Computed example of a mutant assay.
Amino acid sequence: MTGTVRVSDVAKEFGRVKAVCGASFQLEAGELVALIGHNGAGKTTLMKLMLGLIRPTSGAVEVLGDNPAAGEFAGRRQLGYLPENVSFDAALTGRESLAFYARLKREPTAKALELLDTVGLGAASRRRVNTYSKGMRQRLGLAQALIGHPRVLLLDEPTTGLDPELRQTFYEIIARLAAEGATVLLSSHALTELEERAGRVIIMNRGIKVADGSIERLRNIARLPTKIRLKVAGLSGSKMPGWVPSDAVCRRLNGHIVEIDAVPDRKIELLHRATAAGNAIEDVDVIAPTLDELYAHFLRQAERTP
């Protein structure tokens, strides 16, 4: 893979506020990366640094081999950006808005207007933006970000206001762009949506990068327990099956469900015990730590670090 974005020991201060503190990472072509953190963690500031809208207080940012804050940033036309709070001229129609951004990017207008159908605005393209709902304006913002088949796509809370069907379409679009070699950096609080879609997660806390890696790698680092849920026939009262180790953390969820917290080193052992011949197991679910749980873990860990 080829690096498209490099953030090297970057700090950004706004007066006394330290928005980003010594962050370093590299984004590769073809990656779909989730950038997550609480409000004020530095996510939007990082995107603005990559766009060249602001300059770092210290450190360096490189996008497509160049400094985005330079006066003549050649790669700017190859960037797509959807801000958290999208805004358009309310007097223009959807078509006119997209044609305007196509001209700014020096891209063919006809090609850009095809994106209105892609995001489900074809039928409303000749309506003025002031008649659009929040979700429709978000769709228009997404179409704007996709103009010119960008090599780097920066998306700040992109699914806000989108209905479930369009959210699915949105993720299909960005997955296709990543498969074709684009770098996609997506900031969102909708962690459940990202869990099965992001190939990599960067977690920010108070301007500091506290975790970076695939979800599987973060699970290995965090070593949070996996939940093993077993439907057991013939249980009575509140007792546990005899095969459950005495030192295992477990609970009864209802009359027939036993849930065991399995640390990484004991998952296979506990599954073997549960499914051994003679045990009345009717069903098994193995639930790995979710992205929500990993996020909470790394934030707690960061707060404990002096």
Score class of each variant (00 low, 15 high):
residue 156 D to A: 08
residue 156 D to E: 04
residue 156 D to F: 10
residue 158 P to C: 04
residue 159 T to Y: 06
residue 160 T to L: 03
residue 160 T to Y: 09
residue 161 G to I: 00
residue 161 G to T: 08
residue 163 D to V: 10
residue 163 D to Q: 05
residue 163 D to R: 01
residue 164 P to I: 07
residue 167 R to Y: 00
residue 167 R to E: 04
residue 167 R to G: 11
residue 168 Q to G: 06
residue 168 Q to I: 07
residue 169 T to W: 00
residue 171 Y to M: 04
residue 171 Y to Q: 02
residue 172 E to W: 04
residue 172 E to P: 00
residue 173 I to V: 11
residue 173 I to M: 11
residue 174 I to H: 00
residue 174 I to W: 00
residue 174 I to V: 14
residue 174 I to E: 01
residue 175 A to M: 07
residue 175 A to T: 09
residue 176 R to Q: 09
residue 176 R to L: 07
residue 177 L to F: 12
residue 177 L to Q: 13
residue 177 L to P: 09
residue 177 L to T: 07
residue 177 L to N: 12
residue 177 L to D: 05
residue 178 A to I: 07
residue 178 A to D: 14
residue 179 A to G: 11
residue 180 E to C: 08
residue 181 G to A: 13
residue 182 A to W: 12
residue 182 A to D: 10
residue 182 A to L: 15
residue 183 T to N: 13
residue 184 V to F: 09
residue 184 V to E: 01
residue 186 L to C: 07
residue 186 L to M: 07
residue 187 S to T: 12
residue 187 S to Q: 01
residue 188 S to N: 05
residue 190 A to Q: 07
residue 191 L to E: 06
residue 191 L to F: 13
residue 191 L to Q: 04
residue 192 T to M: 10
residue 194 L to Y: 03
residue 195 E to F: 07
residue 195 E to A: 12
residue 195 E to M: 13
residue 197 R to M: 13
residue 199 G to W: 10
residue 200 R to T: 10
residue 201 V to K: 14
residue 202 I to K: 03
residue 202 I to C: 15
residue 203 I to Q: 02
residue 203 I to A: 10
residue 205 N to G: 05
residue 206 R to F: 06
residue 206 R to K: 14
residue 207 G to K: 01
residue 208 I to P: 05
residue 208 I to H: 06
residue 208 I to M: 12
residue 208 I to C: 11
residue 209 K to Y: 03
residue 210 V to S: 02
residue 210 V to F: 06
residue 213 G to L: 15
residue 219 R to A: 02
residue 219 R to E: 08
residue 220 N to P: 06
residue 220 N to S: 15
residue 220 N to E: 15
residue 220 N to V: 09
residue 221 I to R: 03
residue 221 I to L: 15
residue 222 A to D: 08
residue 222 A to T: 07
residue 223 R to H: 07
residue 225 P to M: 03
residue 225 P to F: 00
residue 226 T to P: 14
residue 227 K to I: 15
residue 227 K to N: 08
residue 227 K to F: 10
residue 228 I to G: 04
residue 228 I to Q: 12
residue 229 R to M: 13
residue 229 R to V: 10
residue 229 R to G: 13
